[in-house]
């Protein structure tokens, strides 16, 4: 009996599937778009509409037949600090980001947002991702260009429900305003950036033999 139990345990242990930490893997959604703001003083608002021109294949989005559109809103300036060199650092309240997957491919910035097509044509389709934007900071140069960065707490959408249940998100990029970049009437800045999706905390399945191999070298 003891021999049988030992054999069964060994067999079980050698075939069981275990959860292992996966190697860090950064996925990307690259986007372009336009933002508008009421100003850069405390209480002013910032809104952004964008469209992705690259999405990691793992998410199963085919940009040739559907679009991925972004809308960030509810961002309110908390304060700004002159950090020298003609650059101002602006901090924002918590905001929201929504990304929609839309086969209609009908996004239209129009002019002077909000308007009849913006943001409405950016928030139709299926909700791909929603998140709470936190820690958003902009560095604004005296020429109107600058950089922004922040992080996100994912709250919903098919991306989270599917391949990204435990991901960590960061949002960043550059903006240009009054620097020669093309602007649409009524929008105050052109925005170009990436949403980085870090899968470092996800898990992979592995056989017990694979687990042992990790520690045998």
């Amino acid at each position: 009996m003891k021999e049988l139990r030992t054999t069964l345990l060994v067999v079980f242990a050698s075939t069981v599937i275990l959860a292992l930490p996966a190697a860090a893997q950064i996925r990307v959604i690259d986007y372009l778009g336009y933002g508008w703001e009421t100003g850069q003083s405390a209480g002013d608002e910032f809104h952004f509409l964008g469209i992705s021109d690259l999405v990691d294949p793992i998410f199963g989005v085919d940009l040739s037949v559907e679009e991925l559109t972004l809308y960030t809103t509810n961002l309110v300036v908390l304060g700004s600090v002159d950090v020298g060199g003609g650059t101002t650092m602006i901090s924002y309240s918590t905001g929201t980001m929504e990304i929609y997957q839309d086969p209609l491919q009908d996004s239209d910035w129009g002019i002077n947002p909000p308007n009849a097509t913006a943001p409405s044509t950016f928030v139709n389709g299926d909700l791909f991702f929603s998140g709470e934007l936190v820690d958003l900071v902009m560095f604004r140069n005296s020429d109107g260009s600058g950089h922004f960065s922040g992080s996100l707490n994912g709250t919903g959408g098919s991306m989270i429900a599917g391949s990204c249940s435990n991901c960590v998100y960061s949002w960043g990029g550059t903006f240009t305003s009054g620097t020669g970049a093309q602007l649409i009437e009524g929008y105050s800045m052109q925005v170009d950036g990436v949403l980085e999706i870090d899968e470092a905390v996800s898990t992979d399945s592995a056989a017990w033999g694979s687990v042992k191999a990790l520690y045998s070298n």
């Binding site: 950090v83 060199g85 650059t87 650092m89 560095f139 140069n141 260009s145 600058g146 960065s149 550059t174």
Partner: peptide, 17 residues
Amino acid sequence: LFHYSDLVPSATGGSGI
């Protein structure tokens, strides 16, 4: 090139024009 770490040491971002 504007490297904001020159102004705020914790910053890793920058911009170029």
